[in-house]
């Protein structure tokens, strides 16, 4: 079970925010391959639904990975999608996570984004591995969770 402690959440967010600023992206997201949004840069101007974006990105990467396997390649490393105004660059980390930069093509470009990601990639991998090690060393995190009194009836109109 993947979990983030407050201090880890802060470190991740800080790192992604720095990357976002240096690469002049609109937002940088960290997603796991099943489609969960793990962290994102502090980018108040980004107004799209990041949860939905994470799900679609994971689907997109999964489909491209399956395509590359069909072609006989072992792994997909990164991919790039371009719209009229925006670039979306996605890179796999440890074959478990996806780092995504969305940038305005007038403000940044693929080269800058890739160089800046390269700069932060090592730090990010290290941080994620520390988190994984902490998760493995913990017997159970779930005692601290109180989900007993969730009332699903209140969800519906």
């Amino acid at each position: 079970m993947l979990s983030l402690r407050p201090e880890e959440d802060e470190k991740l967010r800080k790192l992604l925010t720095e990357l976002n600023r240096e690469s002049k992206s609109k937002i940088v997201l960290l997603i796991d391959k099943s489609g969960q949004l793990i962290s994102r840069s502090e980018s108040p101007a980004f107004s799209s639904d990041d949860i939905t974006f994470a799900s679609l990105t994971a689907g997109n990467v999964a489909a491209s990975e399956a395509l590359s396997k069909l072609l006989g390649d072992k792994n997909l490393n990164h991919m790039f999608t371009e719209t009229e105004d925006e670039g979306i660059y996605m890179i796999l980390i440890d074959d478990k996570y996806i780092l995504v930069s969305i940038f305005d093509k007038n403000a940044s470009n693929l080269g800058i984004v890739r160089v800046k990601i390269k700069k932060y990639y090592g730090k990010l991998v290290e941080l994620l591995r520390q988190i994984e090690e902490r998760i493995e060393s913990e017997s159970s995190v779930t005692e601290q969770i109180d989900v007993e009194d969730i009332d699903l009836d209140t969800l519906f109109e």
Partner: peptide, 15 residues
């Protein structure tokens, strides 16, 4: 695999 964020106090599950 559920994802739990103790900072934002969120649990994410996939059905």
């Amino acid at each position: 695999m559920p994802f739990i964020n103790f900072a934002t106090r969120e649990i994410n599950c996939k059905i």
